[in-house]
Protein backbone atom coordinates (compact mmCIF):
# COMPACT_ATOMS: atom_id res chain seq x y z
CA UNK A 1 0.00 0.00 0.00
CA UNK A 2 1.44 3.30 -1.02
CA UNK A 3 1.80 6.34 1.15
CA UNK A 4 0.93 9.66 -0.35
CA UNK A 5 0.21 13.15 0.74
CA UNK A 6 -3.51 13.68 0.81
CA UNK A 7 -4.48 16.12 -1.91
CA UNK A 8 -7.37 17.84 -0.13
CA UNK A 9 -7.21 19.53 3.21
CA UNK A 10 -10.53 21.23 3.72
CA UNK A 11 -11.84 19.72 6.97
CA UNK A 12 -15.37 20.93 6.53
CA UNK A 13 -15.59 19.33 3.09
CA UNK A 14 -14.38 16.05 4.56
CA UNK A 15 -16.99 16.16 7.29
CA UNK A 16 -19.63 17.08 4.75
CA UNK A 17 -18.79 13.94 2.77
CA UNK A 18 -19.07 11.90 5.96
CA UNK A 19 -22.36 13.41 7.07
CA UNK A 20 -24.70 11.03 5.18
CA UNK A 21 -22.93 7.94 6.47
CA UNK A 22 -22.74 9.35 9.97
CA UNK A 23 -26.40 10.34 9.98
CA UNK A 24 -27.49 6.83 9.08
CA UNK A 25 -25.06 5.16 11.48
CA UNK A 26 -26.02 7.36 14.37
CA UNK A 27 -29.76 7.32 13.80
CA UNK A 28 -30.19 3.66 12.92
CA UNK A 29 -27.23 1.93 14.53
CA UNK A 30 -25.71 3.79 17.44
CA UNK A 31 -28.83 5.39 18.84
CA UNK A 32 -30.88 2.16 18.85
CA UNK A 33 -27.91 0.23 20.24
CA UNK A 34 -27.59 2.64 23.13
CA UNK A 35 -31.34 2.51 23.61
CA UNK A 36 -31.09 -1.27 23.80
CA UNK A 37 -28.68 -0.89 26.70
CA UNK A 38 -31.05 1.48 28.43
CA UNK A 39 -34.14 -0.64 27.81
CA UNK A 40 -32.39 -3.73 29.09
CA UNK A 41 -32.47 -2.10 32.52
CA UNK A 42 -36.26 -1.66 32.46
CA UNK A 43 -39.16 -3.94 32.83
CA UNK A 44 -41.99 -3.32 30.41
CA UNK A 45 -45.53 -3.79 31.58
CA UNK A 46 -48.95 -3.76 30.01
CA UNK A 47 -47.81 -4.60 26.47
CA UNK A 48 -44.97 -2.16 26.61
CA UNK A 49 -47.00 0.89 27.53
CA UNK A 50 -45.33 1.30 30.90
CA UNK A 51 -41.90 0.62 32.13
CA UNK A 52 -40.08 0.51 35.41
CA UNK A 53 -36.37 0.66 36.14
CA UNK A 54 -35.21 -2.68 37.44
CA UNK A 55 -31.45 -2.53 37.08
CA UNK A 56 -29.95 -5.84 36.11
CA UNK A 57 -33.10 -7.74 36.99
CA UNK A 58 -33.72 -8.76 33.36
CA UNK A 59 -30.29 -10.33 33.13
CA UNK A 60 -30.88 -12.13 36.41
CA UNK A 61 -34.19 -13.47 35.15
CA UNK A 62 -32.55 -14.68 31.96
CA UNK A 63 -29.65 -16.26 33.81
CA UNK A 64 -31.97 -18.22 36.02
CA UNK A 65 -34.56 -19.07 33.40
CA UNK A 66 -34.27 -22.74 32.39
CA UNK A 67 -35.83 -21.89 29.06
CA UNK A 68 -33.23 -19.24 28.29
CA UNK A 69 -30.40 -21.45 29.53
CA UNK A 70 -31.60 -24.18 27.23
CA UNK A 71 -31.83 -21.75 24.33
CA UNK A 72 -28.33 -20.52 25.10
CA UNK A 73 -26.84 -24.02 25.12
CA UNK A 74 -28.74 -25.01 22.00
CA UNK A 75 -27.52 -21.95 20.13
CA UNK A 76 -23.91 -22.73 20.90
CA UNK A 77 -24.36 -26.39 20.02
CA UNK A 78 -26.08 -25.30 16.83
CA UNK A 79 -23.25 -22.91 15.97
CA UNK A 80 -20.69 -25.66 16.56
CA UNK A 81 -22.66 -28.05 14.37
CA UNK A 82 -23.01 -25.51 11.58
CA UNK A 83 -19.40 -24.31 11.75
CA UNK A 84 -17.88 -27.78 11.73
CA UNK A 85 -20.28 -29.11 9.11
CA UNK A 86 -19.82 -26.13 6.81
CA UNK A 87 -16.06 -26.09 7.08
CA UNK A 88 -15.59 -29.82 6.56
CA UNK A 89 -17.84 -29.95 3.48
CA UNK A 90 -16.59 -26.74 1.96
CA UNK A 91 -12.94 -27.61 2.58
CA UNK A 92 -13.52 -30.90 0.79
CA UNK A 93 -15.21 -29.23 -2.18
CA UNK A 94 -12.69 -26.37 -2.26
CA UNK A 95 -9.80 -28.77 -2.30
CA UNK A 96 -11.33 -30.63 -5.22
CA UNK A 97 -11.86 -27.32 -7.01
CA UNK A 98 -8.27 -26.35 -6.33
CA UNK A 99 -6.94 -29.65 -7.62
CA UNK A 100 -8.77 -29.69 -10.96
CA UNK A 101 -7.03 -27.79 -13.67
CA UNK A 102 -9.76 -27.88 -16.30
CA UNK A 103 -13.14 -26.13 -16.31
CA UNK A 104 -12.28 -24.38 -13.09
CA UNK A 105 -14.45 -21.32 -13.55
CA UNK A 106 -17.66 -23.16 -14.45
CA UNK A 107 -17.10 -25.60 -11.59
CA UNK A 108 -16.54 -22.63 -9.30
CA UNK A 109 -19.86 -20.97 -10.13
CA UNK A 110 -21.61 -24.32 -9.76
CA UNK A 111 -20.09 -24.66 -6.30
CA UNK A 112 -20.54 -21.17 -4.88
CA UNK A 113 -24.13 -20.52 -5.95
CA UNK A 114 -25.55 -21.23 -2.48
CA UNK A 115 -24.09 -17.86 -1.55
CA UNK A 116 -27.02 -16.35 -3.45
CA UNK A 117 -29.50 -18.73 -1.85
CA UNK A 118 -31.85 -16.77 0.41
CA UNK A 119 -32.15 -18.39 3.83
CA UNK A 120 -35.94 -18.45 3.62
CA UNK A 121 -35.78 -20.22 0.26
CA UNK A 122 -33.31 -22.79 1.59
CA UNK A 123 -35.56 -23.43 4.56
CA UNK A 124 -38.71 -23.74 2.46
CA UNK A 125 -37.18 -26.10 -0.09
CA UNK A 126 -35.62 -28.46 2.42
CA UNK A 127 -38.61 -28.36 4.67
CA UNK A 128 -40.60 -29.86 1.84
CA UNK A 129 -37.99 -32.28 0.55
CA UNK A 130 -37.35 -33.55 4.08
CA UNK A 131 -41.00 -33.45 5.08
CA UNK A 132 -41.64 -36.47 7.34
CA UNK A 133 -44.43 -37.79 5.15
CA UNK A 134 -44.13 -36.02 1.79
CA UNK A 135 -40.40 -35.43 1.53
CA UNK A 136 -38.68 -37.43 -1.17
CA UNK A 137 -35.35 -37.23 0.64
CA UNK A 138 -36.85 -38.44 3.88
CA UNK A 139 -38.58 -41.25 1.99
CA UNK A 140 -35.37 -42.63 0.56
CA UNK A 141 -33.38 -42.04 3.73
CA UNK A 142 -35.96 -43.98 5.71
CA UNK A 143 -35.92 -46.75 3.14
CA UNK A 144 -32.16 -46.82 3.36
CA UNK A 145 -31.78 -46.72 7.13
CA UNK A 146 -35.03 -48.23 8.29
CA UNK A 147 -35.38 -45.46 10.88
CA UNK A 148 -38.40 -43.24 11.04
CA UNK A 149 -37.20 -39.69 10.50
CA UNK A 150 -40.06 -37.65 11.90
CA UNK A 151 -38.30 -34.47 12.81
CA UNK A 152 -41.63 -32.71 13.34
CA UNK A 153 -41.80 -34.53 16.64
CA UNK A 154 -38.19 -35.41 17.43
CA UNK A 155 -36.15 -32.59 18.90
CA UNK A 156 -32.66 -33.86 18.00
CA UNK A 157 -33.76 -34.65 14.46
CA UNK A 158 -35.24 -31.18 14.03
CA UNK A 159 -31.99 -29.70 15.31
CA UNK A 160 -30.04 -31.66 12.70
CA UNK A 161 -32.43 -30.82 9.85
CA UNK A 162 -32.32 -27.08 10.58
CA UNK A 163 -28.56 -27.41 10.91
CA UNK A 164 -28.34 -29.03 7.49
CA UNK A 165 -30.30 -26.17 5.95
CA UNK A 166 -27.96 -23.69 7.61
CA UNK A 167 -24.91 -25.57 6.31
CA UNK A 168 -26.30 -25.86 2.80
CA UNK A 169 -26.87 -22.13 2.52
CA UNK A 170 -23.46 -21.25 3.97
CA UNK A 171 -21.36 -23.52 1.73
CA UNK A 172 -21.05 -20.97 -1.08
CA UNK A 173 -19.59 -18.27 1.13
CA UNK A 174 -17.05 -20.65 2.63
CA UNK A 175 -16.00 -22.14 -0.69
CA UNK A 176 -15.40 -18.65 -2.10
CA UNK A 177 -12.90 -17.85 0.63
CA UNK A 178 -11.27 -21.27 0.82
CA UNK A 179 -10.66 -21.50 -2.92
CA UNK A 180 -9.18 -18.00 -2.88
CA UNK A 181 -6.92 -18.94 0.03
CA UNK A 182 -5.79 -22.16 -1.63
CA UNK A 183 -5.07 -20.33 -4.86
CA UNK A 184 -2.92 -17.88 -2.93
CA UNK A 185 -0.54 -20.62 -1.87
CA UNK A 186 2.65 -20.22 -3.90
CA UNK A 187 2.73 -22.78 -6.68
CA UNK A 188 6.33 -23.66 -5.91
CA UNK A 189 5.21 -25.13 -2.57
CA UNK A 190 2.72 -27.40 -4.29
CA UNK A 191 5.21 -28.40 -6.93
CA UNK A 192 8.01 -29.18 -4.52
CA UNK A 193 5.68 -31.30 -2.41
CA UNK A 194 4.52 -33.12 -5.53
CA UNK A 195 8.12 -33.81 -6.49
CA UNK A 196 8.59 -35.28 -3.04
CA UNK A 197 5.68 -37.54 -3.80
CA UNK A 198 3.43 -36.37 -1.02
CA UNK A 199 -0.05 -37.85 -1.41
CA UNK A 200 -3.08 -35.62 -1.93
CA UNK A 201 -4.70 -36.19 1.42
CA UNK A 202 -1.46 -35.69 3.27
CA UNK A 203 -0.88 -32.50 1.25
CA UNK A 204 -4.25 -31.23 2.39
CA UNK A 205 -3.77 -31.54 6.11
CA UNK A 206 0.01 -31.23 6.31
CA UNK A 207 0.59 -28.42 3.84
CA UNK A 208 -2.59 -26.65 2.83
CA UNK A 209 -4.60 -26.48 6.02
CA UNK A 210 -1.79 -24.89 8.05
CA UNK A 211 -1.17 -22.39 5.27
CA UNK A 212 -4.79 -21.34 4.99
CA UNK A 213 -5.44 -21.37 8.73
CA UNK A 214 -5.93 -17.57 8.87
CA UNK A 215 -8.80 -17.95 6.41
CA UNK A 216 -10.16 -20.88 8.40
CA UNK A 217 -10.19 -18.76 11.55
CA UNK A 218 -11.92 -15.96 9.68
CA UNK A 219 -14.55 -18.41 8.45
CA UNK A 220 -15.06 -19.92 11.90
CA UNK A 221 -15.88 -16.43 13.16
CA UNK A 222 -18.10 -15.51 10.21
CA UNK A 223 -19.92 -18.86 10.30
CA UNK A 224 -20.49 -18.54 14.03
CA UNK A 225 -21.97 -15.08 13.60
CA UNK A 226 -24.09 -16.48 10.79
CA UNK A 227 -25.30 -19.34 12.96
CA UNK A 228 -26.33 -16.91 15.67
CA UNK A 229 -27.86 -14.13 13.59
CA UNK A 230 -28.92 -15.29 10.14
CA UNK A 231 -30.71 -18.47 11.08
CA UNK A 232 -33.94 -16.85 12.14
CA UNK A 233 -35.87 -17.62 8.92
CA UNK A 234 -35.13 -21.34 9.21
CA UNK A 235 -36.49 -21.63 12.72
CA UNK A 236 -39.39 -19.36 11.93
CA UNK A 237 -40.41 -21.24 8.80
CA UNK A 238 -39.54 -24.81 9.74
CA UNK A 239 -39.96 -25.43 13.45
CA UNK A 240 -41.07 -22.31 15.28
CA UNK A 241 -38.46 -23.22 17.85
CA UNK A 242 -39.87 -26.69 18.46
CA UNK A 243 -40.38 -29.45 18.94
CA UNK A 244 -40.40 -28.61 22.66
CA UNK A 245 -37.70 -25.95 22.33
CA UNK A 246 -35.13 -28.12 20.56
CA UNK A 247 -34.50 -25.46 17.92
CA UNK A 248 -35.35 -22.44 20.01
CA UNK A 249 -32.25 -20.47 19.08
CA UNK A 250 -31.44 -17.22 20.93
CA UNK A 251 -32.38 -15.13 17.92
CA UNK A 252 -35.79 -16.77 17.67
CA UNK A 253 -36.40 -16.44 21.38
CA UNK A 254 -35.47 -12.78 21.18
CA UNK A 255 -37.98 -12.25 18.39
CA UNK A 256 -40.76 -13.95 20.33
CA UNK A 257 -40.04 -12.14 23.57
CA UNK A 258 -39.96 -8.82 21.79
CA UNK A 259 -42.74 -9.05 19.27
CA UNK A 260 -45.06 -11.77 20.52
CA UNK A 261 -44.86 -11.27 24.28
CA UNK A 262 -43.90 -7.59 24.21
CA UNK A 263 -41.31 -8.11 26.93
CA UNK A 264 -39.23 -5.30 25.53
CA UNK A 265 -36.89 -5.00 28.52
CA UNK A 266 -36.18 -8.69 28.58
CA UNK A 267 -35.73 -8.78 24.80
CA UNK A 268 -33.29 -5.89 25.01
CA UNK A 269 -31.30 -7.76 27.62
CA UNK A 270 -31.19 -10.68 25.19
CA UNK A 271 -29.94 -8.31 22.51
CA UNK A 272 -27.15 -7.21 24.81
CA UNK A 273 -26.10 -10.80 25.35
CA UNK A 274 -26.01 -11.30 21.58
CA UNK A 275 -23.94 -8.13 21.31
CA UNK A 276 -21.42 -9.52 23.78
CA UNK A 277 -21.18 -12.68 21.71
CA UNK A 278 -20.49 -10.73 18.48
CA UNK A 279 -17.99 -8.53 20.27
CA UNK A 280 -16.05 -11.52 21.56
CA UNK A 281 -16.07 -13.17 18.14
CA UNK A 282 -14.88 -9.99 16.40
CA UNK A 283 -12.18 -9.55 18.99
CA UNK A 284 -10.95 -13.08 18.42
CA UNK A 285 -10.91 -12.48 14.68
CA UNK A 286 -8.98 -9.23 15.12
CA UNK A 287 -6.38 -10.74 17.42
CA UNK A 288 -5.86 -13.78 15.24
CA UNK A 289 -5.54 -11.80 12.02
CA UNK A 290 -3.11 -9.46 13.76
CA UNK A 291 -0.91 -12.27 14.97
CA UNK A 292 -0.88 -13.74 11.49
CA UNK A 293 0.05 -10.51 9.79
CA UNK A 294 3.05 -10.33 12.09
CA UNK A 295 4.31 -13.50 10.51
CA UNK A 296 3.58 -12.07 7.11
CA UNK A 297 1.14 -14.85 6.27
Amino acid sequence: MTEFTKPFDSSWQAYLLLVPTFAVLIAFLYYPAVETFRLSLYQTLLLGTQKAFVGLENFKILATSPEYQRSFVISFAFAAFVVVGTLVVSLFVSYLLFEVSRGTSSYLVAAIWPYALPTAVAATVLMFLMHPTLGVITHYLEALTGIELDWFTSGPLAFVVVGLVAIWKQLGYNIIFLVAALNNIPETLTESAKLDGVGRLKMLYKVYVPLISPTMVFLVVMDTIYAFFQTFPMVDLMTSGGPSGATNLLIYKLYRDAFEFNSLGKASAESIILFVIVAILMYVQLRVSESYTHYGA
Binding site: T21, F22, L25, A27, F28, L29, Y30, Y31, P32, A33, E35, T36, L39, I225, F229, F232, I251, L254, Y255, A258, F259, L264, A267, S268, S271, I272, L274, F275, V278, A279, M282
Partner: peptide, 21 residues
Protein backbone atom coordinates in the same frame (compact mmCIF):
# COMPACT_ATOMS: atom_id res chain seq x y z
CA UNK B 1 -13.10 3.52 14.08
CA UNK B 2 -16.53 4.99 14.65
CA UNK B 3 -17.61 3.58 11.30
CA UNK B 4 -15.90 0.21 11.75
CA UNK B 5 -17.36 -0.37 15.21
CA UNK B 6 -20.83 -0.63 13.71
CA UNK B 7 -19.80 -4.13 12.62
CA UNK B 8 -20.63 -5.03 16.22
CA UNK B 9 -24.23 -3.92 15.83
CA UNK B 10 -26.21 -6.31 13.61
CA UNK B 11 -29.96 -5.75 13.53
CA UNK B 12 -30.85 -8.18 16.36
CA UNK B 13 -28.67 -6.18 18.74
CA UNK B 14 -30.85 -3.10 18.28
CA UNK B 15 -34.10 -4.48 16.95
CA UNK B 16 -36.45 -3.34 19.71
CA UNK B 17 -35.49 0.37 19.77
CA UNK B 18 -35.14 0.39 16.00
CA UNK B 19 -38.70 -0.84 15.68
CA UNK B 20 -39.89 1.84 18.08
CA UNK B 21 -37.90 4.45 16.18
Amino acid sequence: MFILLTLLLPVPVRIVPLFQL
